[in-house]
Design a binder for these strands. Structure first.
Length: 229
DNA sequence: GCGACAG
DNA sequence: ATCTTGTCGC
């Protein structure tokens, strides 16, 4: 996959925040994604240990959701975990894994927030500025925003509001399980993002692309390799 | 000043 | 995210 070199990552926290404010203006909300024409969906995730980031990208066919490619990349962690600045810690590794992907991908789901971020620049937005693929943020917990608990049925949703605007949606992907937080990464609209995430959740709470990437990242970290493919 | 806080 | 055993449930 083609990856653009938007900027370097050798920055201090204060500089990182200023850069986010600038980059947020380059993020595109929309156009709608024609989920019916999606052939491949990818998921990205990162596992860490002892100062090393193990990033992986899993590519699945759609709507079948079987894994067709898995790539991994290791990189030293040069930035601490600071709420709101996760991208500066993990994106360098994610970019490495994305460069190795050969299958044409129609959408990428990241295990983090997109626009549901204090400066509207979550990791999914950040990754989205480096690639020519629509990106979606699907986090397991909230970073910012208020919301009403969605209904207990699969498919129930509620708006995630921050600073007076709808920055994402709280989505119940399975009956009675805690909801996930979906938001726009780049080049896709919120409704399409939610539709895609739901279409990727069959038997588990998290979308298959992200779930597969997560498993692969842990295998890469623990066993030094990812297995299949 | 006091909490909250993606992974 | 990672550190960690067993346990309850489908």
């Amino acid at each position: 996959m083609r990856v653009r070199e938007v900027h370097g990552f050798d920055l201090a926290p204060a500089e990182a925040r200023r850069l986010q404010e600038e980059l947020a203006g380059r993020v595109e909300e929309g156009p709608p994604l024609e989920v019916g024409r999606v052939r491949h969906v990818a998921g990205a995730d990162v596992s860490t240990q002892d100062g090393v980031a193990y990033a992986t990208v899993a590519v699945l066919d759609f709507p079948g959701l079987s894994v067709v490619e898995v790539r991994g990349f290791e990189a030293p962690l040069r930035f601490p975990y600071i709420p709101g600045l996760l991208a500066f810690r993990e994106v360098p590794a994610v970019i490495g894994a994305l460069r190795a992907v050969e299958t044409p991908v129609d959408a990428l789901i990241c295990d983090a927030q997109g626009r549901a971020h204090p400066r509207r620049m979550g990791l999914a937005c950040h990754v989205g500025l480096f690639v020519d693929v629509p990106t979606v943020g699907c986090a397991k917990s909230r970073l910012v925003g208020g919301f009403r608990e969605p209904g207990e049925e699969r498919g129930s949703v509620s708006d995630l509001v921050h600073g007076g605007e709808v920055v994402g949606r709280v989505v119940r992907t399975r009956r009675r399980v805690s909801p996930v937080f979906v938001s726009v990464g780049n080049r896709i609209d919120l409704d399409s993002a939610v539709e895609l995430v739901l279409a990727c959740c069959s038997r588990y709470r998290l979308p298959e692309p992200t779930r597969q990437a997560h498993n692969a990242a842990n295998r890469l970290r623990r066993e030094g390799q990812m297995g299949l493919l």
